[in-house]
């Protein structure tokens, strides 16, 4: 399945393809995805991350086409 992932700058982006997707076997969870991405911060900070714009537990099973986004800010005002 293909999952759209928006990752923080300090993470390992080599695991995301040029269109911003990660390919995972079916049945994998949100927690599995975070492990796969080798994020450089504690898993507790997954609270700053959403699945399809909703809070999600690490045990949530992902589905093809899901979007996983991390908190981001832009400069402006």
């Amino acid at each position: 399945m293909r999952i759209r992932v928006y990752m923080p700058a300090l993470a390992d982006h080599s695991r995301i393809d040029d269109d911003g997707f990660v390919n995972l076997p079916d049945g994998r969870t949100f927690g599995d995805l975070l492990s796969y991405l080798h994020l450089p911060f504690p898993r507790g900070l997954a609270i700053l991350c959403m699945v399809n714009y909703e809070k999600a537990k690490l045990s949530r099973t992902l589905a093809d086409g899901d979007t996983v986004s991390f908190l981001s800010i832009f400069s402006g005002g």
């Binding site: 928006y6 714009y53 986004s69 981001s72 800010i73």
Partner: peptide
Amino acid sequence: KVLGASQVVPMDGILSSGIMKKWGTIYN
């Protein structure tokens, strides 16, 4: 610091609305 890093990443801007709701533009 992450924003000012030497690499720029695609972002999902709607997640910044939580920041705007909490502080408004003064988050910056």
